[in-house]
Simulated scan of single mutants.
Amino acid sequence: MSESTERVQTADRLWQEFRQEPFPDSLRRATFGGTHVWLLELDIAGCVLRWLDSSGTLDSKNSILLQSRIEDLDRVILEINDLVGAQYCQRLHQLAALVSRNLPSTK
C-alpha cells in the first residue's frame, strides 16, 4: 500500500472518529482573537471532506484555507482553558495536519 493511500485511510478513520464526538458546549460561543471556534471546525471539516473525496488531493484555494485555519487553530488551542474543548481542538488539529502534509506551500 502506498504512503498516500495509507494516509487517506488514516485520515478517513480519524474523520469518522471525529464526527462521532459532540462539539463541546464550552466552545459553542467561544471566540479567540475574533476567531469563532465553530467556524474553524466548519472550514477544516470542509477541506478534509474535499481532500477525502479527491483521494488525497486539494485544490490551491482549499489548501490555502486549510493552512490558514491550522494557524488559527494553533493560536486558539493555546487559549482554551477547558480540557474537553482543548482535546477536541487538538484532535481536529491532528486531522488537519495529516491532510495538509505534502500539500503545496502557501507561503
Rank of each mutant, 00 (worst) to 15 (best):
W38P: 12
C47K: 04
Y88K: 02
W15T: 02
S105K: 11
K61W: 00
G34E: 02
Q87A: 11
D59N: 15
W51E: 04
D25R: 11
L98N: 11
K61Q: 07
S2Y: 03
M1D: 03
D59H: 04
I70Y: 05
G33Y: 02
N62L: 10
L40M: 07
S2I: 00
L58G: 03
C89E: 07
E3D: 12
V37E: 07
D72F: 04
W38G: 15
S54A: 04
D43N: 07
R91Y: 14
L65P: 03
I80E: 09
R91Q: 15
R7N: 11
L58Y: 01
Q67S: 15
L52G: 05
S26F: 03
R75S: 08
Q16N: 08
Q9T: 13
V84G: 09
R7G: 08
Y88T: 13
Q9H: 09
E79W: 09
Y88I: 11
R13Q: 09
D72I: 05
P104S: 12
H93W: 08
G85V: 02
R19G: 06
R28C: 07
T10V: 14
K107D: 13
R13A: 14
W15R: 10
M1T: 05
R69Q: 15
E3S: 10
F32E: 08
Q9L: 12
W51K: 06
E17W: 03
V37G: 07
S63M: 13
A97D: 13
L52P: 02
P24K: 02
P104Q: 11
L78R: 10
L40H: 06
F32S: 12
W38M: 09
V48Y: 00
P24L: 02
I44R: 03
A45Y: 00
D53A: 12
E71A: 14
L95W: 10
T106W: 01
V76M: 08
Q90S: 12
L103P: 11
Y88E: 15
M1W: 00
H36S: 11
L92H: 07
L65S: 12
E6F: 06
Q67P: 04
T5W: 00
W38Y: 12
N81F: 07
F23Q: 09
T57I: 02
E17R: 15
L103R: 15
A11Y: 01
L52Y: 08
